[in-house]
Design a protein around this nucleic acid. Structure first.
Lengths: 192, 192, 192, 192
DNA sequence: AATGAATGAGTCTTCATTCAT
DNA sequence: AATGAATGAAGACTCATTCAT
């Protein structure tokens, strides 16, 4: 038995192995651009029964979130670190750039990051911590004149999601990402 | 027989009538928030056979585009008029605000406006004219200092789509639309 | 196109053919003792797609009822004729015997005959007519002293269903049917 | 270790405890109107593994029977007592009324009481004793003129099951039970 | 040109049972 | 003896598309 960091419980060795297999396959599918996450085919590819997949992940959304628990936990650390840095503005910009790139690379991440309704309470909790940390960072950046009043952490989340969307529409994402991000960063500042 | 302005051909009277019925129902469905556009139910509601729907619109995308021909033609006029106005900056802002509201009100419009691949050449042609007119307007606004260099009409289209997306993520669209639009407008300006 | 007596509408020739095929297979399945009426296998055996089966019969109950429309219509005639005969008591006994035998031979019939909730309004209508005719017969048999007061047509229906159930429990149905029916017939009379 | 009266073997204390837990939950489920007796959910509710449930009860039928051992044993006593009473006819009527009410209250009991095939030999043995005792009672009632010749204990069992079925079909069981029982009791008598 | 019945692959989901732990 | 994760057959149902009428 090994502790399962994502469930706060202990999983039988084989169960944990299957869970990981399923998650690995799901990750591959998403990476390959197939965001349908069909339980039957995931099960087949993972070499387990469908029932096993359902046992671990009652819904598609739950699977998506499970796929991202580590990433979100990592992000919380990043945002906290960013909020603690000396130069809040640079820090904010770097954070937003990083987040944008993550969204572009991983559509599953983008989907969960955008969504307001989580299947799993732990995901909601993490989002709450994320928002808190971002609020701190934002407050400091605001003091430095880089953020207009009236824009909260959730607004910034939505806006960066919007920018991600704008970049994705186009055909040369690498090219647009930096430009559109620059537009956002300038737009966040108090109007002249 | 009446000329069919959208097909460049002549349609039998009953065919034209059926076409309009289908479009009307499709419009109603979209307006009612159902963007699945299922051909079978549209056919049923329109009182025609599915085959008839397929004859007129080979794909969902084609139907969507047909639904929006008038709207796009109207838009072309708007953008041209905007480009001709004295105060290009105000004009640009008004145009973007109008477009944003249109996207929020009509998800079908948003989908086609965002898309880079059209089912029907006439839609592509219209988009080309739209881009041309917007380029003019943008050039004039740029001279007035309201648009940074390096941002073309297509960029602005994508960015306003992104803002629309950001607004749609939230639960109180009316509240966010104006704020996020303001962020975009400020962001479009040359950096300080 | 031929008129479809069971739908009150006109069915396309091929549709009618398919409908009959499906009903024939369903009938065979039931006769073979399989009362599960699985749509997929019925479709396969009938040589049609599942969708076709679903189109004709939205639910299992609807299919069962469709299977029995003719039988119920015939029964209505029988009960009316029975109610019109000279010797109401003999007539009632013969009718109940016939019904019991029908229930034992055809479990589908027994199921629909017992059920109080019909999928199709026409079935409910037929049951209503059946009840009416039986009420007449019962009234006449009551006058002849063969039916106790307080027992209506629906009670008799339930009781004969119960007798059918009692017979079915045993292993030698032929043996029990007549005896248990005799018990019922005597029990229907006013108490001594 | 405690002797397990129902298995003729000795059960480890924890095994006996588990067995009782499972039976208690199963009883509750049935009482709550859920007669599906799903092993997985029973196991979950009982706080044991499914495997444990299977170990104790190889089939649903076996579980049902185990649930009813006490009740049947009690019934044997009742029927014997009834057979010993002075007024056999009254006694028989009271017994049938009691049995009917039991069937209506407890669908599990009804199922096992009706069934001719038992999973457990002890259940068959009990049914045998029941039949014997009922035969005595019936013989005495027959002498008193309340039961026609040719009707044995098993027939009466089936008939009361049939009456239970008839009552269950309707929507107002309390109302029909007494009437239909009266029909049966009169029907049991020798024909006039 | 119109019809709409038919198609049937595709997907989802459950649950009785087994067996490795 | 107990566990409960795993299994996967089984069955239900949908809907985009075709094609005979």
């Amino acid at each position: 038995m090994t502790p399962d960091p994502e469930r706060g419980a202990t999983l039988r060795a084989d169960a944990a192995r299957n869970r990981e297999r399923v998650l690995r396959i799901a990750r591959e599918q998403l990476a390959a651009g197939d965001d349908s996450l069909m339980f039957n085919s995931i099960a087949r590819l993972a070499g387990v029964g469908v029932g096993t997949v359902y046992r671990h992940f009652p819904t598609r959304q739950a699977m998506l979130e499970a796929l991202l628990v580590e990433r979100f936990q990592h992000m919380i650390g990043e945002v906290r670190a960013a909020a603690a840095e000396e130069d809040a503005v640079t820090s904010l910009h770097r954070l937003l750039r990083l987040t944008l790139q993550r969204m572009l690379k991983d559509s599953g991440f983008a989907a969960v990051f955008e969504s307001d309704s989580d299947a799993d309470g732990r995901m909601s909790a993490m989002k709450g911590e994320l928002e808190l940390a971002l609020t701190h960072l934002l407050d400091r950046a605001r003091e430095a004149g880089a953020v207009r009043p009236g824009l909260g952490a959730d607004d910034v989340r939505r806006l960066i999601c919007g920018i991600g969307h704008a970049v994705r529409i186009g055909d040369d994402q690498a090219k647009y990402a930096e430009i559109y991000l620059a537009v956002l960063l300038e737009g966040l500042r108090p109007p002249r």
